[in-house]
Write a protein that binds this DNA or RNA. Structure first.
Lengths: 249, 249
DNA sequence: CGCTTCTGTGTATGTCATACGCTGTTCTGT
DNA sequence: ACAGAACAGCGTATGACATACACAGAAGCG
């Protein structure tokens, strides 16, 4: 497919390797990928707060302004970092059925986020359009190939699922960060959150929430209950009904 | 309930009105609420990018540094702005049943986000803990009172739903923003996105995505299909199964 | 009445993204 | 081979920003 850069928005051109670099001037001493990797190293080490153009440039072994020969603006660098950090989607066995496939997809996505928490701090900039994002999207769609769900709804399903994973990972990552600041465990963070709610929530003003707290939901001894699993199961149950409905109808 | 500020994290104290202001010095000329309102006006007019301490101070009729007598840092101001902008949850009729209630709740939440798009650009800073956030949480929980769902799962359900609403609203708001930059319609934005995907997606590399595109999902004449409704219905279907299950078991 | 505490303010500092122009390099066309 | 175009990397400059600090005057307390 021939691609003239005109039709592709400027902020996506770099991600798709559409920046033509004519052979005129000196050899480039840096590579876009090297810069992006440097940015990822900085973010992984010290968080996105530490990702400044000068810090990334230092990490890449160049001067601050050199980066602008490869990247239009800092936002573009961040987008490239995210796209690279997402990486390739897992290989999903089409024979295992849509539910197992989507489950694996969601867990893999979540694992990527949790292992690189800085990604949650880069704001979304629109519907998926970078190469790896589309690869994940495609992988997700592929496991629903056997179902009778119309294409439009397949797309919406993946968008629903990816939004959920992102939401849940964001909260999980936030709590983990709060935890690491005090060097305690995730269990303790939940307990601390419960203590906070107990302080703040007046049962007369927030009766339903009061009942939740009174039920001991935040008590430390609560046995293994996984927030992520719960939401995932609800969503997949809902999709299951859709699958039956579209197959039966 | 007596609240000494010690147990409440510093960034929440202001939101809960726990900043004690002893009667010693001069009368304060500003109010926290006035500052927050000023911030909201700036954000509504020119986006969060325009919300700088000096801009908000000017809007509030004070000097930049005066704000720091009321707010610990900019982040805290942003949190307060979000909490205020969320406002009070809708009154939900408990008699209408959990599904209608959650539907109304989700639509109301989405409406708030879409009418104040800047809210989507303020990063989440942890589990819900500000007064209005807890009020929304409580309202959501209250409509599930009649179901046999355990408290823990009620909480997870609302978290699932609110995460979904936020995800979907973020994308919707992004597309609306992109649209307004070119002064076109949302329909055109979707069509443009489809055109972009058609350019970028090699069907050999992304076969499933290629099928979605080929099915004409992004064609402009697609009749009224609402992304938000789709996801919401799937989630509510999944919750419905849970309700039956907990009632039956 | 003097002391303390607090308010609003001006100034100073350090960080950042990024525009601009310079120097030297490499390739193109002749 | 050569002139000049196009481009790489760099240093400096600029303007925005968050925020620390110290000061002057106000308001209550002893």
């Amino acid at each position: 497919m021939e691609l003239d850069g005109d039709a592709v928005p400027a902020n996506l051109a770099a991600a798709w390797g559409l920046r033509e670099r004519p052979g005129r001037g000196p050899k480039p001493g840096l590579t876009l990928d090297g810069i992006v990797q440097a940015g990822i190293r900085v973010a992984a080490a010290d968080g996105i707060g530490a990702v400044s153009m000068s810090r990334v440039a230092a990490e890449a072994g160049a001067s601050t302004m050199a980066l602008y020969r490869y990247v239009r603006a800092k936002d573009e660098l961040l987008e490239l970092m995210v796209d690279t950090a997402i990486g390739d989607p897992p290989r999903l066995d089409p024979a295992q059925g849509w539910r197992a496939g989507l489950t694996a997809w969601a867990w893999a996505c979540r694992a990527v986020y949790v292992s690189q928490p800085w990604m949650m701090r880069v704001p979304i900039s629109g519907p998926p359009a970078t190469p790896h994002q589309l690869a994940w999207l495609d992988a997700g769609l592929s496991v629903m190939a056997g179902t009778g769900i119309p294409e439009e709804e397949k797309l919406s399903t993946i968008l629903l699922l990816s939004g959920y994973v992102r939401s849940e990972a964001t909260v999980a990552v936030d709590m983990l960060a709060a935890v690491q600041a005090v060097d305690s465990s995730l269990d303790e963070a939940i307990t601390a959150y419960g203590r906070l709610l107990k302080l703040l929530v007046d049962p007369a003003r927030f009766p339903s929430l009061g009942r939740v707290i009174a039920a001991g939901v935040f008590d430390p001894d609560t046995d293994q209950y996984d927030e992520f699993v719960f939401g995932l199961d609800r969503i997949l149950d809902g999709i299951g009904l859709l699958v039956e409905q579209r197959a039966g109808g």
